[in-house]
């Protein structure tokens, strides 16, 4: 780990004032401390924000407001989250391990870095870690890598489960900068790698995520997260799907489909949503929608299976959600 100055911020303003290009905020530490030890991240200053009063989960103007420092486990077990945004609780519950969920925060989870092992090994060519060096994964071993949103410069998958759920919930991220607070719709938070894979999101170096608003949409409470991985727990997604829709008179209302494990960023499948909207659910419809979700996938040799796997994952999430809503309606919806 490169030597750094450790600063403990007592207020949000103090934290923002201390921020800068060679500075990182640290709260749970689960990404930053790990990557600093690997010398993949080498900030000169780290600002400890763990003591800031940003961990509340409370009613906001548009729905539930989750503080950036709320621990993943606290959000997952919050009864309001479980009842009104089940996809979020399920996504968090499926991520990492109980200990890590007790440490990781909402803000840190959003900005976690990829698990691409070429990025992490500190040696291989990696445009994300060392811009301009190339991408060892592109022609290397890339079973875990993205099939959507990649470029020849980077195909690293975004690792977050939570962000996929938040995408399906149209979450709004509130960011405090030196001058003001601004809001970023979650769909605008993450960037495609294109030819600058080291630039991953639209939050500035001197900005701090303060909370995330979860709008009270009609579909939020009817949502589901399905995650497929290489072992039954404690593994990153090969593919995951956050699906949300409300059945209205036997038809799918407004729908959200977001994918994890297959995209270079949490992946919103708008084409698939369009296929579903207004249609009566049927196996054929699900097939069409899940096919649409993977439209444009560009698999490579080791990760080609992810296309089919992700389709199936979407289908499973859809089916489970349908069954759940069916059960609520006494089976009449179908």
């Amino acid at each position: 780990m490169q030597p750094f100055t450790y600063v403990r911020a007592r207020t949000v303003d103090e934290a923002v004032a201390a921020a800068g290009s060679d500075t990182r905020f640290v709260a749970g530490g689960t990404t930053l401390v790990d990557l600093m030890r690997l010398e993949v991240m080498t900030p000169r200053t780290i600002v400890d924000i763990s003591g800031l009063p940003l961990d509340a989960i409370e009613e906001g103007p548009t729905g539930l407001r989750v503080g950036a420092l709320a621990r993943n486990s606290a959000v997952a077990r919050d009864p309001r989250v479980r009842a009104r945004y089940p996809v979020l609780a399920q996504a968090l519950e499926s991520g990492a391990s109980p200990q890590l969920r007790n440490m990781a925060t909402v803000g840190g989870n959003l900005l976690q870095r990829t698990r691409c092992s070429y990025f992490r090994d500190g040696v291989s060519a990696c445009n994300k870690r060392a811009p301009g060096t190339g991408c060892a994964a592109f022609d290397g071993y890339h079973r875990m890598h993205a099939v959507l949103g990649g470029s020849e410069h980077c195909i690293a998958a975004h690792p977050s489960d939570m962000a996929v759920a938040l995408l399906a919930l149209d979450a709004i991220v509130h960011v405090r900068g030196p001058l003001a607070t601004r809001t970023v719709p979650i769909a605008d938070l993450f960037l495609l790698p294109k030819d600058t894979p080291h630039v991953e999101h639209t939050i500035g170096a001197n900005e701090l995520i303060v909370h995330v608003d979860l709008p009270a949409t009609p579909f939020a409470a009817h949502s589901r997260y399905v995650k497929v991985r290489d072992r039954s727990e404690f593994a990153f997604a090969l593919a995951s799907a956050a699906v949300a829709f409300e059945l209205r008179s036997g038809r799918v209302g407004e729908a959200r489909i977001a994918l994890g494990g297959v995209g270079t960023r949490p992946w919103r499948a708008r084409e698939a949503e369009a296929v579903l909207a207004g249609q009566p659910p049927s196996p054929e419809l699900v097939k069409k929608a899940s096919a649409a979700a993977l439209e444009g996938a560009r698999p490579r040799k080791d990760n080609a299976f992810k296309v089919e796997l992700a389709r199936r994952t979407v289908a499973r999430a859809f089916e489970e959600l349908l069954v759940a809503q069916d059960a609520k309606d006494g089976g009449g919806a179908r």
Binding site: Y6, R8, G28, G29, T30, D48, S73, Q99, N102
Partner: peptide, 12 residues
Amino acid sequence: ERMLSCLTLAAM
């Protein structure tokens, strides 16, 4: 609460 001491800086 159970947490991982390897990813926790002593200072924190």
